[in-house]
Amino acid sequence: MILVLIGYMGSGKSSIGRKLVKKLDYKLIDLDDYIEDKEKATVKEIFETKGEIYFRKKEEAYLLELLKLEEDVILSLGGGTPCFGNNMQHILEAKSAKSIYLKASIGKLADKLIEKKAKRPLIAHIETKEELTEFIGKHLFERTHYYSKAEHIVVTDDKTKKEVAKEIIELL
């Protein structure tokens, strides 16, 4: 089975994915890391040298490649992945995949991301928590349509990573 973790940046896709790997003995694949390995460049470098359209085409191709795996995998997607091309449809149609939207509130995301914004190119330029909250709200408004198509929605607010991982395991 392929467990596909979907959600906004900071929702816990990577950290909860690591918890699930330990509990389920699955392999963890981060799509962005996979793309960087295949393309021999960072996501940032790909955007800068080849542009977003090139990146999004590669992202879709590598997603399709990973959705065909016949092993137990936790697949952590980039926050924008489900929102481009036919990516969400590919995930929903993949016969061995289960999609889970890690849903966090705007406030919780802003609290978490304000401390790590320097490491996140999309938000590094944002000065204040109020601006960040507004930015996240706008993005979530655009993306929730895609995220909500996931087979399961797990609210992460006020839960530990361990509690979220346990809830996901119970869904399986």
Rank of each mutant, 00 (worst) to 15 (best):
E48Q: 14
E48V: 00
T49S: 14
T49H: 02
K50N: 08
E52S: 05
E52A: 02
E52W: 00
R56Q: 01
R56P: 12
K58I: 13
E59Q: 02
E60G: 13
E60S: 15
A61H: 07
L63Y: 04
L64Q: 13
E65P: 05
K68S: 15
L69M: 14
L69K: 15
D72S: 15
D72H: 10
V73D: 06
I74Y: 00
I74G: 07
I74Q: 02
S76D: 12
L77V: 05
G79D: 09
P82F: 02
C83F: 08
C83S: 13
G85Y: 08
N87Y: 10
N87F: 12
Q89E: 15
Q89G: 15
I91K: 02
I91A: 04
L92H: 07
K95R: 15
S96C: 02
K98I: 11
I100H: 08
I100P: 03
I100L: 13
Y101Q: 10
Y101L: 04
K103M: 11
K103L: 01
I106P: 00
G107A: 07
K108P: 01
A110V: 09
A110M: 11
D111V: 04
K112W: 12
K112Y: 15
E115T: 11
A118K: 12
A118I: 07
R120N: 07
L122W: 08
I126P: 04
I126N: 06
E127H: 15
K129R: 09
K129S: 03
K129Q: 15
E131V: 00
L132Y: 13
E134G: 11
E134C: 12
K138G: 13
K138Q: 14
H139I: 05
L140N: 03
R143Q: 09
